[in-house]
Computed example of a mutant assay.
Amino acid sequence: MALTAITLLCFAALLPFPGLGGSEEHSGKQGPIPIKVTVINKFNNTNISYSTTAPVGMPIFGILNQLHDKNNFNFTYTISKSYGIFLESVNGLAGSTERHTYWELLSKKGNSITQLNVGIGCYQPKKNENFIMNFTTWD
Rank of each mutant, 00 (worst) to 15 (best):
Ala2Thr: 14
Thr4Gln: 13
Thr4Arg: 14
Ile6Gln: 09
Leu9Ala: 10
Cys10Pro: 00
Ala13Arg: 11
Leu15Pro: 01
Pro16Cys: 12
Phe17Leu: 14
Pro18Val: 06
Gly19Met: 09
Gly19Cys: 08
Leu20Phe: 12
Leu20Tyr: 10
Gly21Cys: 12
Gly22Cys: 00
Glu25Gln: 11
Glu25Lys: 11
Glu25Thr: 07
His26Ile: 12
His26Asn: 12
Ser27Ile: 03
Ser27Lys: 05
Gly28Glu: 10
Lys29Ser: 07
Gln30Asp: 13
Pro32Ser: 15
Ile33Thr: 00
Ile33Trp: 00
Lys36Ile: 06
Lys36Trp: 02
Lys36Pro: 01
Val37Pro: 03
Val39Phe: 02
Ile40Glu: 11
Lys42Asn: 02
Asn44Cys: 08
Asn45His: 12
Thr46Cys: 02
Thr46Gly: 01
Asn47Asp: 14
Ile48Tyr: 07
Ile48Glu: 07
Ser49Gly: 10
Ser49Trp: 05
Ser49Ala: 13
Thr52Asp: 01
Ala54Cys: 04
Ala54Pro: 05
Pro55Thr: 03
Pro55Gln: 07
Pro55Cys: 04
Pro55Arg: 06
Val56Asp: 07
Val56Ser: 10
Met58Cys: 09
Pro59Met: 02
Pro59Arg: 00
Ile60Tyr: 06
Leu67Gly: 01
His68Thr: 11
His68Leu: 10
Lys70Tyr: 05
Lys70Gln: 11
Lys70Met: 07
Asn71Gln: 15
Asn71Tyr: 15
Asn72Gly: 06
Asn72Thr: 13
Phe75Cys: 04
Thr78Gly: 14
Ile79Leu: 11
Ile79Arg: 13
Ser80Asn: 13
Lys81Gly: 15
Lys81Pro: 14
Lys81Ser: 15
Ser82Asp: 11
Ser82Leu: 11
Tyr83Asn: 13
Tyr83Ala: 12
Tyr83Val: 10
Tyr83Gly: 06
Gly84Cys: 05
Leu87Met: 12
Glu88Leu: 04
Glu88Trp: 01
Ser89Ala: 08
Asn91Lys: 13
Asn91Trp: 13
Ala94Met: 04
Gly95Val: 00
Thr97Leu: 07
Thr97Asn: 10
Arg99Phe: 03
Thr101Asp: 04
Thr101Arg: 00
Tyr102Glu: 07
Trp103Met: 06
Trp103Ser: 02
Leu105Pro: 07
Leu105Met: 13
Leu105Arg: 10
Leu106Ile: 02
Leu106Phe: 04
Gly110Ala: 04
Gly110Asn: 07
Asn111Ala: 13
Ser112Leu: 08
Ile113Gln: 15
Ile113Arg: 14
Thr114Pro: 06
Thr114Glu: 10
Leu116His: 15
Leu116Val: 11
Val118Ile: 14
Gly119His: 06
Gly121Trp: 02
Cys122Ser: 11
Tyr123Val: 04
Pro125Ala: 14
Lys127Trp: 00
Lys127Glu: 01
Lys127Met: 01
Asn128Ile: 10
Glu129Met: 08
Glu129Val: 05
Ile132Asp: 12
Met133Ile: 12
Phe135Met: 05
Phe135Ile: 06
Phe135Pro: 00
Thr136Arg: 08
Thr136His: 04
Thr136Ile: 09
Thr137Asn: 04
Trp138His: 09
Asp139Asn: 14
